[in-house]
Design a protein around this nucleic acid. Structure first.
Lengths: 344, 344
DNA sequence: GCTTAGAATGTAACCGTTTTCAGAAAGGCG
DNA sequence: CGCCTTTCTGAAAACGGTTACATTCTAAGC
């Protein structure tokens, strides 16, 4: 009757402590640092936890310990295979090291991104994973003021004083364009993704342009079209390019979805790929090798990229010193959609 | 020097209170219930917040108020267009009503799902969005014990005592199969997704089978193949079906990815769709109407479904009484991939 | 047997909010 | 002008953990 364990505390760590006949400190230790508690106590506590059905209250834990073992991530959209894959890898890695991921989306809006960052910081995340280095000017200050470590993923900028991990999009795009140039193409069009607030898209365009320039080729403005991330828009762009009197014999695209749209439209318009038109994509999505013709593209190891971003932050948080700028390799995958021009 | 506002409190709500020369209670009220505080104070506080760069600490808030304005969601994988779209819609809706979403993935593993639920509950989520009704047997008890409202999304089961929102997959699949039956097909194969821990896939298979049975058609076991969610596996299945001596003249598929694989393989194997083989998909992904031939499929309004799930929980949490079982319409979209059999 | 270092455990003060309760200020009314 | 509502505001007790510090126990060393 006077069993002290029965004294109040219907739930929480105190209930567990009461049931096991120990102090809350021991329960906490058994949970966070098992070696600091004797095996017998540990067992008794484990049993009490089981019996009570105790679930530690993360917010209280975060409040008290000032860290959450949670990372935040802000991506433009989750509705894009590349980001979805990246996030999936990141999440998988984080859960393997006992971290969680708090994901939000910005829709390519820098103000929204800033607000989300504020949200996540308020949430107590230990670090932040950001897409690219194109942010609201207030973001850096926000992160610095709150001492939140972060990393820009999906780009490679060794000259910047901020950590990043990703492929060198400019170089990769340059490689892609060089491929069609080496095949003998002289009239090369570009269908890029929207460059606004998207440094990845911009870097790719820059790479395409540099390759053309270096080869002494012109890029008439009408040969560069910018489109949203949809098949319809890509097709419309292709229709336009193919309707030009002086139409290009090759098109380099900002991503595989665009390239697929170009492929589809070329076919519908009676052009044969690669005979009448060479097409190069970027990203190497799952289905790109299945297309007919299969798509020549740049392979980017997205999963690895995002996982490395997680590794960087987790290691930093553990006090390890890690390399700040990590370049992830890309590779040109030559398939059926590119060939020398039929009448050079 | 003796300015009371300058007394300690370098951060947090106390810093704001000190700076504005008010109590923390007033700051809290100004934030959570602005009408409860006089306009003049409100202004002074707002200014102090701005000046200090104050970001409310969500964990402390959750701890104190016992609610988080956060919902948890557990999906099998984010790396599937349908789920990505659904989550995107849900997230968009939630943020429009001031809620956040905590997303985790289970990889179709019921134990993992249970653990994630525990995680999320520990995190203090106000409600849980679950995919389907195929869960670990301990999950329901966990939810009940912790009084966490939840909803099963993507299925429709009016007979169950749990809330759900989604399309009736069985009926939709029945409709799809009926379509090819009405076209005159008698030999109909099924390439379904993996049914293990996936009631959506199972319901679709059930619908297909019922349609066949009702039409008095046989379904030899070799005409039903189950494959993972990849083009390669779908193609392998198609290759197998088309190699059978007594091959089907139509194939109904568990989803559009599978259907696309079947389309690709049929073409490579020298079969013409729909002349030699009719193909029906399920989901109506973005690119399905762009395929050549374009894909006959079942359109499912995923975004709407997930948003409604969010609405249900948000309303329930607000104390409103909402309908427990919500059916979301599907529709058969007939395109080029289906036609009457050439030699019936 | 007596110290005493070291390990195991307990006590209680935080962490940053919300919220109850009570007091103060401001109107309204006889 | 005093009294009673009504409206604002403040003081302080939670919320459920962690952890610095104090205390108790154990066993080794002499």
């Amino acid at each position: 009757m006077d069993l002290p364990a029965a004294r109040l505390a219907k739930q929480g760590i105190r209930a567990v402590a009461a049931r096991a006949g120990v102090s809350t400190a021991s329960v906490s230790r058994a949970l966070n640092n098992p070696d600091a508690v004797s095996p017998s106590l540990r067992a008794r506590i484990a049993q009490a936890i089981e019996a009570v059905g105790y679930i530690p209250h993360a917010p209280a834990r975060i409040l008290s310990s000032r860290r959450s073992r949670t990372l935040g991530a802000i991506v433009p959209t989750i509705d894009n295979t590349m980001f979805a894959r990246g996030i999936a890898s990141l999440q998988k890695y984080l859960s393997s090291v006992g971290y969680m991921l708090f994901l939000t989306t910005s829709g390519y809006d820098l103000d929204v991104e800033l607000q989300q960052a504020r949200n996540l910081i308020g949430r107590g995340v230990d670090g932040l994973v950001l897409r690219g280095d194109c942010h609201h000017e207030g973001l850096r200050k926000l992160l610095a003021d709150n001492a939140v470590p972060f990393i820009n993923v999906g780009i490679y900028q060794p000259d910047r004083p901020y950590p990043c991990v990703g492929t060198n999009n400019e170089a990769a795009a340059h490689r892609a364009a060089t491929h069609v140039i080496e095949l003998g193409h002289r009239r090369i069009g570009i269908v890029s993704a929207l460059q606004r607030n998207n440094d990845r898209a911009s870097a790719r365009v820059a790479g395409f342009r540099r390759a053309l320039t270096e080869a002494g080729l012109a890029l008439p403005s009408q040969w560069h079209v910018e489109v949203p991330y949809t098949l319809d828009d890509a097709r419309e762009a292709a229709r336009y390019l193919l309707s030009l009197e002086d139409r290009p014999t090759a098109v380099v695209c900002g991503n595989d979805v665009i390239a697929y749209g170009v492929l589809l439209e070329a076919e519908r318009s009676g052009f044969s790929v690669p005979r009448d038109l060479s097409v190069v994509g970027f990203d190497d999505l799952d289905w790109s090798r299945h297309l007919r013709p299969s798509l020549t593209t740049i392979h980017v190891p997205t999963g690895e990229t995002w996982q490395r971003a997680g590794e960087y932050l987790v290691r930093s948080l553990a006090g390890e010193h890690t390399i700040m700028h990590h370049e992830v390799d890309y590779s040109l995958v030559v398939r059926e959609s590119t060939a020398p021009p039929s009448n050079p």
